[in-house]
Design a protein around this nucleic acid. Structure first.
Lengths: 102, 102
DNA sequence: AGAATAAGATACTTATACGCATCATTGAAC
DNA sequence: GTTCAATGATGCGTATAAGTATCTTATTCT
């Protein structure tokens, strides 16, 4: 299991997909989110972890909201989003059971 | 509009509620999430912003998953979660239009 | 009253997210 | 082959997330 490193790339993938779907440049998203382009690039490529607040700002800039979903409800939420991802946005999930440790 | 400060407290409120619902101590959650107790406390009280990766770990420790939901789908997702928040978990949302800048 | 546990709070140090400036590479237009 | 736009990538300085240690307070149990 890939705890952080891959979860970051997972997030970055969603951000990039949403950005391209919105026809925005990295610079535009960075500006909307209130961060610099190099920083946004690092986040989108998964080479750096953004703060939760920064990720929220980026998500909003891309027309998304960050939510905490009970794991039991994740499948239902995914099902709700699936028939919708025509061309709009690809709400991601970070499905890593990663051995938190518990 | 209170951009970050309040969104943090919003998140913290959800974390605390989920933690109490799971009958876990701050130390247990911190340990599960791989951070120190003082740090978890700061996050839960909203006095500090965690990294996205840290928030994901905390969420998982509490039986939740972080998801990015298209804004258009947020109401539907909330509706899906509402009849469920009996005693389990209260999937939060950060509904702040906050004037990031855009 | 005293002991144990959970939580609030502080100080010091380290790791890193972020801004800013800069340069290289790619791809499209000329 | 030159110019412009978009992206990838560094280096330096600052802000802050996070670790560790310590102390206090509230609660519970004896």
């Amino acid at each position: 299991m890939q705890s952080q490193p891959d979860a970051l790339q997972d997030i970055g993938r969603v951000l990039k997909q949403a950005r391209l779907a919105s026809a925005l440049t990295q610079e535009q998203v960075a500006d909307l989110a209130g961060i610099s382009r190099p920083r946004y690039r690092d986040i989108e490529t998964g080479s750096a972890a953004a703060r939760a607040s920064t990720l929220m700002n980026i998500a909003r800039a891309l027309g998304m909201e960050m939510m905490l979903i009970p794991q039991a409800m994740v499948p239902a939420v995914e099902a709700l989003l699936r028939p919708h991802d025509d061309d709009d946005l690809p709400a991601f999930v970070s499905h890593a059971e990663d051995g938190d440790d518990g």
